[in-house]
């Protein structure tokens, strides 16, 4: 059988790749993709804990469902915000979007 730590280490690698992507990329869409990676890592952790630690509580699986739901909402909203910024400022580069009002 696969020990639980294998899944935790995999999710750790995925999460730190996401951290790197969020900090190193400049385009809002690429940052969103890195955030998706981090959410995936969290889902793996939740499900691994659910099946290895608390087999009759389901809480991990339920949380994974909510993670997927919220991620879908987040992607839709972020796409709208990026389109709005792009229309106003002709850029999707987060370094250039630094004014609070215009």
């Amino acid at each position: 059988m696969i020990p639980m730590q294998h899944f935790l280490v995999l999710s750790g690698i995925l999460f730190s790749l996401g951290v790197y992507g969020v900090l190193a990329r400049r385009s809002a869409v690429l940052i969103l993709m890195a955030v998706e990676l981090m959410l995936q890592a969290v889902s793996i952790n939740f499900i691994a804990f659910a099946v290895y630690l608390a087999p009759d509580a389901f809480v991990g699986l339920i949380f994974a469902v909510f993670v997927i739901t919220v991620a879908a909402a987040e992607v839709g909203l972020l796409l709208a915000i990026v389109l709005r910024i792009f229309r106003n400022q002709a850029t999707a580069n987060v370094d250039e979007v630094d004014v609070m009002r215009w």
């Binding site: 990329r25 385009s27 809002a28 869409v29 389109l83 792009f86 580069n93």
Partner: peptide
């Protein structure tokens, strides 16, 4: 989103 914002036209926007 990639298509509509044309990130690929700005290679400088890739890495900070």
């Amino acid at each position: 989103a990639l298509m509509l914002t044309r990130v690929q036209d700005m290679p400088a926007a890739l890495d900070s």
